[in-house]
């Protein structure tokens, strides 16, 4: 059956476009979109780097681990403690969080380093040997 005669096809097309639109909305949301913590990930020749803004999260409440090419950041942020607190404005969230990101290649799990400095977590993930770019010499035939 040709597409034009298929009664379902226009609906499938609409669905595809809607889901595309939703994906775009989500990726433009930034840190206010509800995903915590926001992450920046970049790489150079030898390492992957991941940085997350985790203000107010104590070092002992933060867990970082890697399996293969996956990095997981997990932790919790405590709510304000004390009796008789009346909130006039509450923009900061609290509770447990977890982010899992896939990296393009495997990392050397034994050499991963994580530092927390004034609420910014930075993870340095050395690439596994097989994930590093290799220079191949072109030989003339």
């Amino acid at each position: 059956m040709s597409r034009l005669l298929d009664p379902v096809w226009p609906f499938m097309q609409l669905r595809r476009e809607l889901s595309h639109l939703i994906d775009n909305l989500e990726s433009n949301g930034g840190s206010t979109s509800g995903v915590f913590p926001p992450l920046n990930v970049w790489e150079d020749r030898d390492n992957y780097y991941a940085e997350a803004e985790v203000p107010g999260v104590a070092q002992e409440d933060l867990e970082v681990f890697t399996i293969g090419d996956e990095l997981t950041i997990r932790g919790k942020r405590e709510p304000m403690s004390g009796k008789g607190l009346t909130y006039h404005r509450q923009e900061r969230g609290w509770g447990q969080f977890e982010r899992v990101v896939s990296l393009p290649g495997d990392v050397d799990a034994d050499k991963v380093e994580a530092h927390l400095h004034h609420g910014v977590l930075k993870v340095i993930l050395p690439k596994a040997e097989e994930a590093k770019p290799r220079k191949i010499t072109v030989t003339a035939a």
Binding site: P55, M80, T86, Y87, H88, E91, R92, G119, V120
Partner: peptide, 22 residues
């Protein structure tokens, strides 16, 4: 920065998320 404004008996607390600031 994101902020919480909390009222207590003796005053107000402003809590601001400012990651990376010294």
């Amino acid at each position: 920065p994101l902020v919480d404004i909390i009222e207590q008996k003796d005053g107000l607390l402003l809590v601001l998320d400012m990651p990376g600031v010294e």
